[in-house]
């Protein structure tokens, strides 16, 4: 333990150095404290999360719910669709071409169009956020099914596993490691999309909080929002990995091939 700590000291140097320099420069007025308030002040200000008057608690919950709803639908539809299209090479290759075109388009661009259709509703927000994660889930599910050992599929065929048994017994568990990696990637895209949409077109949420506080130059509150978004990002990546590695210990071996 002591030795591990002794070797890992550089881990703390970077963050401590940056935060300390920021704090000192800001306190000494070298960088303008109105724009770069000292980190300690931001931390103290972070108490507004629990202050009902600021409404920030509600914004966090709104963002979280949107992220969770989006990822839920992305996984549900993406896995089903991904497995369905592997049934035919024509479907798989054709869909691949379509998705390759759609993938690099930022999901938020579909927001104007979806608000034409649905108005400025929660539905429009979630559907916009869904675009990229859904594509990611389909692609990773297809890759997962492709990674299943051919012999396994043939054995299943010979023993007459078809329909639901083939789907839940072989295809889903076989593709699971790739699907889980897909969920991790999708979570990242979901967070980006939800925050971006909230910045332009929602009446609540962290993105809206960030943007509106920036516009009235309440900079410290803006930093608090950034801090919480950073924490959400960490939870979606490092936190997700910790949970997934525990639940699917064999995932690590496959992961290298996917990312």
């Amino acid at each position: 333990m002591r030795r591990a700590l002794g070797e890992k000291w550089p881990l703390f140097v970077g963050p401590v150095f940056i935060l300390l320099t920021w704090e000192l420069l800001s306190r000494a007025d070298v960088i303008r404290p109105t724009f770069f308030p000292p980190p300690t002040e931001i931390l103290i200000r972070a108490g507004i999360i629990f202050d009902a008057g600021s409404g920030m608690g509600g914004d966090i919950i709104a963002t979280l719910l949107r992220v969770l709803a989006t990822i839920f639908f992305a996984v549900l539809i993406g896995v089903a669709l991904g497995i369905a299209i592997t049934a035919s090479q024509w479907m798989e290759r054709g869909t691949n071409t379509v998705l390759a075109f759609l993938y690099p388009i930022p999901g938020v661009l579909f927001f104007p169009f979806l608000t034409f259709l649905l108005g400025r509703t929660e539905m429009a927000i979630i559907l916009t956020a869904l675009v990229t994660p859904l594509i990611v889930m389909v692609l990773y599910t297809v890759a997962g099914v492709r990674s299943i050992d051919r012999t396994l599929l043939e054995v299943a065929d010979n023993y007459g596993a078809d329909g639901a048994r083939r789907f839940f017994g072989i295809l889903v568990p076989g593709a699971l490691p790739s699907i889980v990696t897909g969920i991790r990637v999708s979570l990242g895209f979901t967070l980006i999309a939800v925050i971006a949409i909230e910045m332009v077109g929602a009446s609540n949420g962290l993105g809206q909080f960030l943007w509106s506080n920036w516009q009235i130059l309440r900079v410290t509150d803006m930093y608090v929002a950034l801090l919480i978004i950073a924490v959400l990002g960490l939870l979606s990546s490092v936190g997700f990995d910790a949970v997934a590695d525990r639940m699917l210990p064999w995932r690590r071996d496959v992961q290298g091939a996917q990312t």
Binding site: L210, A230, L234
Partner: peptide, 19 residues
Amino acid sequence: LLIRPITDTLYPLPKIALL
């Protein structure tokens, strides 16, 4: 080890929020 904590924190942060 020096840059790991910084990349781990900033990589998953939606950069659009930094705009």
